[in-house]
Design a protein around this nucleic acid. Structure first.
Lengths: 150, 150
DNA sequence: TAAAAATTAATTGTGCACAATCAAACATTA
DNA sequence: TAATGTTTGATTGTGCACAATTAATTTTTA
């Protein structure tokens, strides 16, 4: 007569320790918290830092393009970008060729932050204490999940 | 005369696509969004679901214990638990033996949700489309990062 | 080209998330 | 035991995050 394969593990999938998603949730928050002391010196939050990564590379992008790359919608980006514009880090203006679009352009004060942020990636890698192999393996799994869920 | 090893990759670590942390941030949000339609049927948010995972297992816990297990502080938990108490899912009361502690206890309406949440973990595994090997490998890396950052 | 459909941001409302501060209760020790 | 220090939650204020709705503009199509 068949018995339950793991008798003591009733509802084991409904235990926090057996969740795969919770570690993602927790690691994500802990990573943001690990950035905080580094970014605070620049007056930045983590989502604002992500916007800067894109603007430092591309100079200017529309809100739609920022949202596509960061997987964030305008309800998140609009107030965030307004705060960044108030600090003269970037400008917001309608695209005259398509008045629906808003162009976000890096301003000199925002460009200045790029040099100050230079050491941040290495400092974070130091906090994570992972080998190049581990990082490469993780990147593969995360990219897979990202495409699976996006 | 030595040249830069990767001439075209000036500041490559300051590009979004080369970030390791961004995928964690994005995957975490996408996972929460993937839970949403499943949990909405129960009237739950993802953080509330995590609280329930602990209460279904332990029956009752203090706010401090919940915070330690979920890595959340009282500024997050107090209002969240008040909303859950308002729905009669749990009770909040001071521990008479130590009036500083607040005991969170599962109520019948909260226990009822356990059965309804039963299929959720399998449904999420289906959405993630990962092999048992991938999941096991990910769990190792995530646990390592968690202990490294916590 | 006039009407219908689609695109793009902004707005509104709810719910986290966390730093900083506060207040109450408990523990320690001089 | 009285003063000091610690623990525990609650509160306050700021900043995301996202669903749902709205408004303006552009594109498509009848």
């Amino acid at each position: 007569m068949a018995t339950s394969p793991i008798p003591s593990a009733k509802n084991s999938l409904l235990k926090l320790e057996n969740q795969l998603c919770f570690p993602f949730y927790a690691v994500s928050r802990l990573l943001t918290k690990a950035y905080q002391p580094l970014l605070q010196a620049l007056g930045l939050t983590y989502p604002q830092y992500l916007v800067f990564l894109l603007l430092w590379e591309h100079g200017q992008l529309t809100v739609k393009e920022l949202g596509e790359k960061l997987l964030l919608d305008s309800g998140t980006l609009t107030p965030l970008l307004k705060r960044m514009a108030q600090k003269q880090w970037l400008s917001r203006r309608r695209d005259p060729r398509d008045e629906r679009s808003v162009i976000i352009e890096l301003l000199p004060a925002g460009r200045t932050l790029e040099a100050q942020a230079g050491p941040v990636p290495e400092q974070m890698l130091g906090k994570m204490q992972m080998s190049a192999e581990e990082i490469a393996a993780l990147r593969v799994h995360l990219t897979h999940l990202l495409t699976q869920l996006a």
